[in-house]
Amino acid sequence: MSAGRQRTFNKEDALTKAMEVFWRNGYSGTSLSDLTEAMGINKPSLYAAFGNKEQLYVSALNEYVLKFGVPHFDKLLAPNLSLKQRVSDYLESIAEMVADSTLPGGCFLTSSTCEAGSDCLPSDALRTVSKINETSTNAFVNFFKDEQEKGNLPLTSSSGVLADFLLTMQFGLAVMARNGIKQDRLEQVINHAVSNF
C-alpha cells in the first residue's frame, strides 16, 4: 500500500464479519473465499490488514472474548446479590447469548475448543484458545476464593472444582443451544445446576 493511501473498508467491521464466519463454520470449515466474500474485500487486502487466515482467526477470537465473553463476567461481580443469584445471572446471560437467533449460534470459543481437541487448528490458534480458557479458569478460581474470604462459600469448597463447573456449564449451554435447544430449557438446566449454591 503506497504512503497516504487509505483502505476502502472499515477494519473493525471487516473483523466482526470474519468473526461471524469463523463462529458459524469453524476454522477448518472456513475458506479464504468465505472470508473475503463476507468481509467485502479481496485477498490482498485481507493479507495486508490482518495477515494470514490463522492471524485473522486469532484476532477474531480475541474480538469475540471482548464483545461476547467479558460482559458476562460482570454478572458475577454485581453488588448486593447472593452468590447463588450472581452465578445464576451469569449463566442466564450466557444462555441468552448462545440462543440468540441473530447471532451465528452457540459459542465461538466453545466451537474453537472442540476444534482444538483435533488436528484442525494451527499452532498459534491452538495457543490462543488454550490461553483464553486458562485465563477464564483462573478468573473463576480467584472469584470463588474471594467469595470464600467474604464468607459466602465454605472454606472446604474447592475453588478449582467450582471454576471447572462454571466452564463446563457455559460450554454445555453453548453446545445445547447450537443443537437447537431454546433459551427456556437452558434456563431450567441452570436453575437445577445452581440449586446447591
Rank of each mutant, 00 (worst) to 15 (best):
L56G: 03
Y57H: 06
L81S: 09
A60S: 06
L83C: 13
H72Y: 00
E37I: 02
L81W: 14
K53Q: 04
N80D: 14
K67E: 02
S45Y: 14
L66Q: 12
L83W: 13
E37T: 15
L66F: 09
M97P: 04
L76V: 14
L15N: 04
A95V: 08
R86Y: 02
L15D: 09
R86D: 04
A18W: 08
A60T: 01
G69D: 11
S59R: 10
R86Q: 08
A14D: 04
Y47K: 13
F50W: 05
V21N: 00
V87D: 01
L66Y: 05
D34A: 03
E20R: 13
A95Y: 09
T36H: 15
S31W: 08
I41P: 00
A78S: 05
V21F: 01
F22C: 06
P79N: 14
T8K: 14
E96V: 00
N52G: 14
F22L: 08
K43H: 15
M97Q: 10
Y64M: 00
E92I: 05
V87H: 07
L61A: 03
E20Y: 14
Y57D: 00
T36Q: 11
G40E: 13
E37R: 15
L76P: 12
I41M: 05
A95P: 05
Q85T: 14
P71D: 14
L83P: 11
I41D: 07
V70R: 10
G26P: 05
T16Y: 11
F9H: 07
S93P: 07
A60L: 10
L15T: 07
S28L: 07
Q85G: 10
A14N: 07
N10K: 10
E12S: 09
T16M: 11
N62D: 00
S45H: 12
S82P: 15
K75T: 01
L46N: 14
E12D: 15
L76M: 13
F68Q: 11
L46K: 11
A78N: 03
N25M: 01
L32V: 09
E92D: 13
G69Y: 02
A78K: 06
A38H: 03
M97R: 01
G51V: 06
S45A: 12
L15A: 02
V87F: 12
N42T: 04
S31Q: 08
R24G: 01
Y27P: 01
S59N: 08
L15M: 05
Y57P: 02
P71Q: 12
F50Q: 01
N25D: 06
N62P: 09
W23G: 04
A18S: 03
P71M: 12
Q85L: 12
D74F: 12
K11G: 00
L81F: 15
D34I: 04
A48K: 15
D89K: 13
Y64W: 12
Y57K: 02
Y47Q: 13
F22V: 10
M19V: 02
